[in-house]
Amino acid sequence: MSNTQASNGAHARIYVVVFVALLALTIVTVSLSYLHLSVFPSVLLALIVASIKGYLVSNYFMHLISERRLIYAILVLTGIFFLSLIFLPLSHFHDRVG
């Protein structure tokens, strides 16, 4: 437990900033949906906003930003299989005969 009170205080401030940013982004994504854009831009924008929020949660609340290489390695591996699970079946559905 090498953390001092002061650095914990600094962490707490970062968490509050992240919290406010998440609330703001929630408002952004809901407002965007009221624009009723066509499918492609609305999906793209929604995914970008969600990814930023996901980035904030995983990097700060789950403190991935200062995590060990071992954890990164596991997550990269999972990410590759996640993408193959999403895109390989999809490409099969778009490349069908009969």
Binding site: S33, S42, G54
Partner: peptide, 17 residues
Amino acid sequence: HFVDLVWIFLFPVLYLL
């Protein structure tokens, strides 16, 4: 936080698109 993270993606995907 992971449960929160899942919701962050569920919410736009199901409600907003």
